[in-house]
Design a protein around this nucleic acid. Sequence first.
DNA 1: GCGCGACTTTGATCAGGATCAAACCGGGAC
DNA 2: GTCCCGGTTTGATCCTGATCAAAGTCGCGC
Lengths: 249, 249
Amino acid sequence: MKMKMDVALDTKECWNCPIKHQAVCARCEPDELTRLEEIKYYRNYDAGQPVIWAGDHMEFVASVVTGIASLSQTMEDGRTQMVGLLLPSDFIGRPGRDSAPFDVVAVSDLTICCFRKKPFEELMTTTPHIGQRLLEMTLDELDSAREWMLVLGRKTAREKIASLLAIIARRDATLKKHSPKDGMTFDLPLTREAMADYLGLTLETVSRQISALRKSGIIELDGKRRVVIPSLEKLMNETGDDVDGGLIA
Amino acid sequence: MKMKMDVALDTKECWNCPIKHQAVCARCEPDELTRLEEIKYYRNYDAGQPVIWAGDHMEFVASVVTGIASLSQTMEDGRTQMVGLLLPSDFIGRPGRDSAPFDVVAVSDLTICCFRKKPFEELMTTTPHIGQRLLEMTLDELDSAREWMLVLGRKTAREKIASLLAIIARRDATLKKHSPKDGMTFDLPLTREAMADYLGLTLETVSRQISALRKSGIIELDGKRRVVIPSLEKLMNETGDDVDGGLIA
DNA sequence: GCGCGACTTTGATCAGGATCAAACCGGGAC
DNA sequence: GTCCCGGTTTGATCCTGATCAAAGTCGCGC
């Protein structure tokens, strides 16, 4: 049985061609996307700033260029659940729909690349591989969302934290272009509260479980945000996931 | 603010044309799909029978014709989380991928219509609207999965049960081709255990909360499975969702 | 009818995480 | 430096839902 890992935090390929780590890669500029120049523009947001409210009329689709955004829903009484993290190269928007289903909020300083929706949709019909790429990305996102449902529905608080750390570790390694390994170090891109909203916990429980993992020697902390993973295998053993040796999905 | 409802349980349109309630509708037969005749075949399963195991090599894609199947994942220690229900017209399979990400199990007696994958993928490239339809369906599923994450991560047991009942009520009304209304009656298509697996609860909690809703007069029971909703509004008030009068999404 | 088995209900107790509360830490403005 | 403030940690207690256990219901085959 192979190990499953959520890919929601992985950096994806350019949605226009198979280049990793870029929303719109250099290689694309010479071909189809040049046609988009006139409908393409950039937006910048500060950490914490809302980008889109659920229900907003969307006159654009977009792609994250730098920074992190969260996708989340909030109930009337304030309970909120993060349903996804948007990382560089992730796509924002629904071709064919005119309102946004969820709130998008900048977690860090954020730059997105917007395309006016109508012309983008036209491009999709004339350039089939863009549609195919979007379908593939959407299928990946769907699998990730479903894998996260196991985390939310069935895992303990400790397993949830370990799962999140494992995902961030993996994502971070990908960004740095090497595979995850023992002794790796990274910064948590989220506050305790944001982690809680992602995991369906309270911030106090997140804090306690992180302390517990530290006391168990599963992780080491350098300040509040910097994490060291002495043994990846030990961390994986805490996730509740089926591990069979490697980080191969 | 409009009310959101999970659409995972809704009956979808034919993936080849915009006709409701049929996986492959009569209208489609004369055009593109006739070309598929030679690659199309049916499979039947009994209630409880596994259809696909996660990791299986998939040489086909398929569409549910009649019956209900569940999509779920199970941890090594037996904890399981249902991540979706597959209803008539729902699509099974991943064009471009060769192994199944989740287990599929027949919940009721089930008939699916299979298409050999290779020729289906070729059809997708030559018939763009099939790809577009698949993208739309996948986006809907993604939204549903994300909405369900709120249920799993943040709702109480009572809210979870009310949410599930509301969804089933809505789905059932759609099947019967009228809108949900006070006094409506339907059969639960799931055992208490399956509901628990869908909601991230134990079967005992499901049973207790159903009893509690009955005692509160939110629902009436006729036997174990048949449910009457005297007031849709009262049920909706128990879901924790933002309701503004109607069942309009 | 009887007995069996799958499913469901209900009860008693337990425990994991939420809640309420207070203190702590670190960085930036002044 | 000091103050302040957002983010974090830790403690005490509570409560929801899990767990363990037993009994009830229904349908079906014999």
